[in-house]
Nucleic acid binder design. Structure first.
Lengths: 206, 206, 206, 206
DNA sequence: AATGAATGAGACTTCATTCAT
DNA sequence: TATGAATGAAGTCTCATTCAT
């Protein structure tokens, strides 16, 4: 199996997958797919190895244990999603526009990456996870929004509510919509997304 | 079952099977506590038996297998939460008041029952679960809100948005707040709860 | 395998092996045999289960882990060997006779129970073992001899040497002889055993 | 090899293969330290490579497999210990003096080289080892003592006992003392060592 | 009806060894 | 010659489930 054939002639193919075939990445890619579909506990390490086309031992060269595979994947995805959220945002834009762009970015990212979304949500509810990782990584995301909301409140464009409530209102809607969309309970298009976020803005604007 | 119907008439029958019902209840109570703390996979059946003060064999007299324990618990809790949501609501009230009462009920129920909330959320994200149960049970909850929102839209009190978006907006906020409160990231009191729900209403009102 | 046949008709046989078929004992018996032949690391738990005619899970009902199997076995054997050493000894006997009986007992016990001897020696040299168990158990053995040697020194029948040196001289010889006998390098009979121990006495007598 | 022959004449040749020899030596040195501390099974080859500051692959250039590392180390140490035993001994000395010197040499060597002693004892009890190596190497040691004891018996200075019993008596004491000293159960100094060996002589002298 | 001892499939992980560089 | 990434067999242990009492 798996390149074991000694008389392998497809060297060219190998070269192609050589550089980006960074084993760590390959493992995390397979992990995302399997974890999002079958859950952490529904994904034995043997299956992960098979999906990633590596030996099990190889996984343990890159990650100390299963939990580290999960938490490393989470960290990478969270960074990626934070980056996605920040696209096309600048401090010069009107606050309303920033708000709408931020949450549109987020919702669109979730919808375009359902596996990543499902994995992150699963992770965030899993009592099985070392919460230090959760904290460590979430802060980047939260802080960035917190300062934005506080800026909006100071400029009297956003209601004078506890920042957490503001966060929960906007973020909660987006998460809820993504979940429903992925579950097939709703079929969001760009127009609906825009309307949904504007609705959220109506909640929070002054 | 236990809490499904407030107008339960078979009380007499229940008294007869009292001890039966006790064991079942005792097991589900222990299950809620353990599952919410350690997760489904962090809770071996032997531990459940021990916590419930019954033999392991006994659990298998009341539930076909572990998954049935989980899904039965979910069903009961979902019914209970739907009942909680409906308290103090009547069709005569103004729609706004109904809306606020419904979501206040819900948020307060979650906060008062953190284990139940955490269990239900964990369940809803677990790929491990037979989704038929999920569907089956959620409908009661969703349907009842759907018809309310549609009523509100027809009377031009609620915005003319897709019902799912309306649902996601209100429900998402509440779930998000409950999660944060339980995680200790916010400390909600009655006043904050009221303000948060009113904010949600601002989003959806016409 | 192993009693799995549902139509098993040899109930009588089962009853026979029922009471003494205390699983714990059966496991330790199998463990002694396998450990003495193949060593701790040459004996996988699966093999132990097979030899003991129990499921692997059963081993873990009686012992927390492999190490506990080993240390429990050691404790039992050490007690047994101490008991063997003490046979036919009484404080009334001349010290010389006591000495000879003690070490004859010991050597004969080792020779009659080569597996037990080999297991105990293997254990005592294994860096893999929790030394607290070693200490805990050995003391009974050592103390009993220590007080005997001190008694002999006080009565000026045994040389005035450090008790440890006395112990090492007598015990070392016996262990060394047992090892050689079991390895087939010498073939000890009662007469040789007697002569060997008398030689040891010559070393220590005053 | 390294220590086998004091009158080694191929020094020139050695200088040529200097680096070769270094790697092999470095590996065996690291092996001694790790094996004596953690045991054979507690020492992965990767750890050995790390400790020796060589790649794992390199170990396999010098030794066919792990067992060969162990047995080669054993052979070298056994040769070394035999050499140590023979120091300051000459056929001209009185037999008693030879005896005392031989076993003093041995005990002092063990005490001065606790790792080597522990390794050799561990090895000698390990059922894991190919016993052919054991035989092959021990003979040098045993034979040399055997002829000495037989010489002593012939000259009627040593008791007319089976040579094996004589060997077991003297060797057993020394091994036992070394073990106790290293374990901290006794603290031997030159005077005690001398007394202990003299005691041994009392056992065996005619 | 209730129990819990017994089971073994299957999970996670280690580590001796290989082989391409 | 030297390296160390890659491998997967094999080990330990857990835990859902069964069944005799």
């Amino acid at each position: 199996m798996r390149f074991t054939d000694k008389n392998d002639l497809i060297g060219v193919f190998r070269i192609m997958t050589n550089s980006d075939c960074d084993k760590r990445t390959v493992i995390l890619d397979a992990a995302l797919q399997l974890f999002s579909e079958n859950g952490f506990h529904g994904t034995p390490m043997t299956l992960l190895a098979e999906k990633a086309n590596v030996g099990i031992g190889t996984i343990y060269r890159y990650f100390k244990n299963k939990e580290e595979v999960i938490s490393n994947l989470y960290k990478e995805l969270k960074s990626e999603s934070v980056a996605a959220m920040r696209e096309n945002i600048s401090r010069d834009m009107p606050i309303r526009e920033q708000f709408i762009n931020i949450f549109e970015n987020m919702l669109k990212y979730y919808i375009a990456n359902p596996q990543k979304f499902l994995f992150m949500e699963q992770y965030s509810y899993s009592p099985f996870i070392n919460s230090s990782t959760k904290q460590e990584v979430c802060s980047a995301y939260a802080e960035s929004l917190v300062s934005f909301f506080e800026y909006g409140k100071k400029h009297q464009v956003i209601k004078d509510l506890s920042t957490q409530i503001i966060f929960a209102t906007a973020n909660g809607q987006v998460v809820s919509l993504a979940k429903m969309h992925i579950a097939g309970e709703i079929n969001l298009n760009d127009d609906m997304i825009r309307k949904a976020i504007e609705t959220s803005w109506d909640a929070l604007k002054r």
